[in-house]
């Protein structure tokens, strides 16, 4: 199981636009990725490709989240997704 933390970089939090960009990328990844707030157990982790789960997570700017995935290329996928989370998409 590959695991990686990321700090939400969008000042509006993991809301509509940032969540859509992230969910789309997670959905295109070759492995299944989960997301959880730091400190929550892996069993409570949510499907990272679900925009509704992401929005319900309530992750604000500066919140630390944990990404998890299993299988070939998991590390690289998590790295790529963490970069998306840490970018402030609203300044683009």
């Amino acid at each position: 199981m590959a695991e990686r933390t990321a700090i939400i970089g969008s000042r509006v939090g993991l809301h509509a636009r940032p969540a859509a960009i992230f969910a789309e990328a997670a959905g295109e990844a070759p492995v299944e990725v989960t997301i959880a707030l730091e400190g929550e157990s892996a069993e409570d982790a949510l499907d990272a490709s679900s925009i509704l789960s992401l929005m319900g997570l309530g992750a604000e700017y500066g919140t630390t989240v944990v990404l998890r995935a299993e299988g070939e290329g998991a590390e690289a996928v998590l790295h790529q997704l963490a970069v998306i989370l840490e970018t402030d998409h609203d300044t683009e």
Partner: peptide
């Protein structure tokens, strides 16, 4: 466009 894209993702949302 951003709103429509997010809404499209909701329609096919796996959790839902």
């Amino acid at each position: 466009q951003a709103v429509l894209k997010a809404t499209a993702l909701m329609a096919s949302d796996k959790t839902l």
